[in-house]
Computed example of a mutant assay.
Amino acid sequence: MNQQNTTQALSPARHFTVLLSPTPRGARLARLLAVEWMRDHEVPYGVAETATQLVAELAANAATHGRVAGRSFRLALLRHGGVLRIEVTDTRGERLPHVQPSTPEGDSGRGLLLVEALADRWGVEQGPVPRKTVWAELDLPNP
């Protein structure tokens, strides 16, 4: 194996995925694991702070609105080129998220407004049945 192949083989993975319980505890664990992964992969501080908020919101939504007893949700973090992508997949594909107007008195309804404000891009992908994936992307600064 030449030096270039050795370096590539030893470089850390640029993606992370984990299954978590669709509970408040699972959502908190998603946030904590994301923080550690971003620290290990040297995601710039400002991006990491924003990504942490996005993971917290998307994981909380999966635990609240995407919950199905006995089924986990999946958190995936992908760093490719100049983009950090956050994906949260749950098994409630029939319940697609959408931005709702919030009211000052309401206890909920602001989550996707926050995602929309923080992410450079976000969206929803359906499938395979019964799953859906809500994703958010953040552009990384040029080195």
Rank of each mutant, 00 (worst) to 15 (best):
M1Q: 14
M1P: 09
Q3F: 13
Q4G: 12
Q4R: 15
T6E: 05
A9V: 15
L10N: 09
R14I: 13
T17C: 05
V18N: 01
V18T: 14
P24T: 08
G26T: 07
G26Q: 04
A30H: 00
R31K: 12
L32G: 01
E36Q: 11
M38P: 02
G46K: 12
A48N: 04
A56N: 09
A56D: 07
A56F: 08
E57K: 03
L58R: 08
A63D: 00
A63Y: 01
T64G: 12
H65C: 08
G66A: 08
R67G: 04
A69D: 01
F73G: 00
L78Y: 01
L78H: 06
V83H: 00
I86W: 01
E87Q: 14
V88L: 03
V99K: 04
V99Y: 03
P101W: 11
E105I: 15
R110F: 10
G111P: 00
L113V: 15
L113Y: 09
L114Y: 06
L114I: 14
A119N: 07
D120W: 07
W122D: 00
W122Y: 09
G123S: 09
V124T: 12
E125A: 11
Q126D: 08
P128G: 09
R131P: 04
R131D: 03
R131I: 04
V134G: 05
W135P: 02
E137V: 11
E137M: 10
L138R: 02
D139T: 15
L140C: 07
